[in-house]
Design a protein around this nucleic acid. Structure first.
Lengths: 122, 122
DNA sequence: ACAATAGTTGAATAACTGTTCACATATTGG
DNA sequence: CCAATATGTGAACAGTTATTCAACTATTGT
């Protein structure tokens, strides 16, 4: 009982009703790795804490302390999430004394947020 | 080294050194519920299986069987994910005999995918 | 009616993820 | 140096989630 792959693929011409797909059907599909990376990117946006952080940084840079206060969460939790955002290149930071100020890394992030927001508000 | 760019929360004023601004700092932040919904939307895109499904439907509608074959996955797994996509209104479907054809629900989905893809390829 | 095909679904399991807690690091002022 | 502030980080725990498996519904052809 190994995996019995679906039969409606290219070779399903033996009597099945619906049309078959020419070739392997993967033309036009971006390469596996790209799709994986794309999912990884959206995964970053797929957490309300991170979304709130990004919106907190929408217009101005803020320090960890202020973000934590704004979201009513611990600085540790915020710091953990900022690291994720930093690794994904969605935020940048600069140090000023003991304080570290975070900001959106570029306008692209704003565009992506806006696009999703548009879909929500329909 | 004092820049006046940064701002501190009002309730962060329990002895912290840097300056504060009036207000609760939440002006311009979309309401909590919206941000939550936005994260929920991106969560849908944040899975490589679902991303692959959406790209499989990018140009043409396809039945569950074909999607499963295309992604080399079981129909059950695909069906589960299609249900998620369906509930999020990202795909629509029509029945033709025993076959159910799925398609992207609107061009909005393509736009969101494209926006993310742009960010990846930079 | 019956068998075969196409798809759906609930439960279970394994893997992943966000927050907390405690501690570590870094910077400044005294 | 030492104390205080601001942030970073590893481990652990709880909650979530994607896939598999088995059963189920629905539709078609004979």
């Amino acid at each position: 009982m190994e995996e019995k792959l679906p039969v409606c693929q290219p070779d399903c011409a033996e009597g099945h009703g619906h049309p078959t797909i020419p070739g392997d059907g993967e033309e036009g599909m971006p390469p596996e790795e790209i799709l994986y990376d794309l999912a990884e990117l959206y995964k970053i946006f797929g957490d309300s804490t991170r979304i709130k952080i990004l919106y907190a940084l929408f217009d101005e840079e803020r320090c960890v302390c202020d973000i934590a206060g704004l979201l009513h969460m611990s600085m540790s939790a915020i710091s953990h999430q900022l690291r994720v955002l930093k690794q994904a290149k969605l935020v940048k930071f600069r140090r000023a004394g003991r304080t570290v100020y975070y900001a959106l890394s570029d306008g692209h992030v704003r565009t992506i947020l806006g696009q999703g927001m548009e879909h929500i508000c329909e």
